[in-house]
Each structure stands twice: as structure tokens, then as C-alpha cells.
Amino acid sequence: MHIEIDAIAKTFGRVEALQPTSLSIPSGALVSLLGPSGSGKTTLLRILAGLEAPTTGRILLDGADATGIPVQKRRAGFVFQSYALFRHMTVFENIAYGLRARPRRERPSRAEIARRVDGLLGLIRLPDIGPRYPSQLSGGQRQRVALARALATEPRMLLLDEPFGALDAQVRKELRAGLRDIHDATGLTTVFVTHDQDEAFALADRVVIMSTGRIEQVGSPADIRKRPAPGFVEQFIGRTPTAAIPG
């Protein structure tokens, strides 16, 4: 789904978290919002999901104004930074939650729900963990369950807030590839927030670099590395030599 962000701004009290920001995300893209903390990237992601209302501006989804659509109807799959799995439910119940929350006449049958959950557990390559509780899973497993739960309701877009933030280096690499695979398999327009430029450059088709509530540069990883915008981006990219990722 094509996402059009039209002059979206957000202030919390007197703090301007997001200055008027416009951005076009083509259908099926895998986009990274990259920036240091306080750059407004998570705020922008939460506005896309409907978890925050913008102070001004519009969100267009496939050309239709979605600014006023409440979070429940927005159909955005959201993976939270700490995963936010329901701790009192099994993995199966977590993934089935969105389907079971539907009004009765739209709710799939029990068998259909079980089939869908099993399919998703297969997709994240953890077919046998349905009966376990989140507290019995490793960090990497939790992240994948959160991803499966977000996909269960057949969202129109996938939004991830620091999806690899809480994991160690080895697991991060594996899960990066996992997210890429899932993106390619589902074709979902995907936006993820990160402060780690390696991650952004390695995974995304397009990188959106943000700082202090503004978009500083948008481009493919190669473009940005070749021609970083003068000022913040130059400094941000240049600071760590590891930015030069092969590929």
C-alpha cells in the first residue's frame, strides 16, 4: 500500500517532536527511519499506526485520507520495541488475539484461526512453540512471535519500532534476514525505525534520515553513502567507519 505523509507535525505540550514532515513511501517498499534518539522517528511511526494523532497534516493511504481513522481500523501491523507480547497468554493465543478480537460475524472459525496461527508459526520458523508463554522464550523468539502476531490480522502495512534493539549481534543478523524474507514473501509496505545505521543500510530499500524532528535526507543506501547531504547526515554517516557495508 502506498503511504503518503503530507506535512505531518506533532507537538507534545511545548515540545515540537516532529516539524511539518512530508514523505512518500511507495507500495511494497522496505523503508527505514534512521536517526538518533529524539529525532522524531518513533513519533512518525506511531502517527502512521494511529497510536498518536498528528497536530497538523494528513496521512494518505492509497490516496485516501486516513488521518482520522482510529488505530483499531487502521490495519497497521505494529511490532513494539519491547515486543509487548501479552504475558498471560500463550504464543498461540498471542498470535490469535487479533482474529479473536473481531466482531462475531467477521471472526474466522476456530479451525480457520488455528490454521492461520500454525501457518504464521511456520513462516517465522518456530512451528512448535504455540503452547509456550512469552516468559519461556528467548529474545529472538519473542521478536518473531511479535512479528507473527502483527501479521495475523492481514495488515495493510507493517510498522516496526527498533525491532532488533534488544538483541545481541548474532541474533540481530539472523532476524534481519528473517524480516527481509517476510517482507519479500508478503509484499507488505514495511517501515522500521532504528538508530543503527548498519541495520538501516543493510536492510532497507530506502533510508529516511531524521534528526530533531526533521527529515534530513531520503534515498537508497547507495545514494546516501555516495552523496550524503551536507551538515547532519555527513556527520552522522561519517562518524562510524562501519557505515561502509558491502552490497
Binding site: 488505530v71 490495519r75 505494529f78 502476531r149 490480522t153
Partner: peptide, 16 residues
Amino acid sequence: RAEEEAALTLGASGWH
């Protein structure tokens, strides 16, 4: 609030 927000993004009503 994260778990509650997760429930909302999955389509749950406030009461649910």
C-alpha cells in the same frame, strides 16, 4: 501501555 497499545493495533475495542 505497550501491551494495551498492541491490543489496539490488533483491532481490539477499548472494552475488549
